[in-house]
């Protein structure tokens, strides 16, 4: 049953994304794009774009978006609840333990080992996104089929983020405008 499947998928996303922010990306990609195919890589990237420009955690946005697409209003409620439930259980439990004992060194130790892994996983998700951006969905990576305009926009964006220190939202909007400009000029 699709609702149960979605609930369980987003439960896993909620349960295994440590570190907030982008940490949920690789999990969302794994469950939603790779495993169940509820979104294509392009839609997934659109979703991240939308998430960046609206308030709220990416995981919640993803749950609502995928839930609506696959199962309407009921789907979005089920997926969002699945996504939040692990937090409800574990954060409450940790708060309870903390208010009682005020010590959590084992947990800190686990997080210390998870952090480098999470960085690597986010990097891996980022690479999938760039592959789609530069070569299109599912296309083979070949030099002559590269969308050079996208590579150029990527380079400009990295420069604006690292050197000019512009805000991510502004940089993304500029990336969109650049692409539109290039296409209108005859790309």
């Amino acid at each position: 049953m699709i609702y149960l499947q979605m609930f369980f998928s987003f439960f896993q996303i909620g349960l295994f994304s440590f570190g907030g922010g982008y940490a949920a990306l690789p999990l969302i990609q794994g469950q939603i794009v790779d495993l169940h195919g509820w979104l294509g890589m392009e839609e997934f990237t659109d979703l991240i774009t939308i998430s960046q420009m609206t308030p709220g955690p990416i995981a919640i946005n993803a749950a609502t978006f995928v839930g609506t697409k696959v199962g309407g209003v009921l789907g979005s409620v089920v997926a969002t609840m699945g996504c939040v439930l692990p937090s409800c259980i574990l954060a409450t439990l940790l708060a309870k333990l903390y208010l009682k004992y005020r010590k959590m060194d084992l947990l800190q130790g686990v997080l210390h080992s998870l952090r480098p892994a999470v960085v690597a996983l986010i990097a891996s998700a980022g690479i999938s996104i760039l592959l789609t951006a530069f070569w299109g969905t599912g296309a083979a990576v070949a030099l002559e089929r590269t969308h050079w305009a996208m590579v150029g926009i990527f380079a400009v964006c990295v420069f604006l983020l690292r050197k000019a220190r512009l805000s991510p939202i502004l940089v993304m909007v500029l990336a969109g405008v650049l692409k539109l400009g290039i296409s209108l000029l005859g790309g």
Binding site: I129, L130, A175, G176
Partner: peptide, 25 residues
């Protein structure tokens, strides 16, 4: 077209975040 261009933008944002995080490690 805007959304397509933003894919490169999102890629850049993630690359930048990963760079900072990896530098920390």
């Amino acid at each position: 077209q805007l959304l397509e261009g933003m894919q490169a933008g999102v890629g850049a944002v993630i690359a930048s975040v990963v760079y900072d995080m990896a530098a920390g490690v």
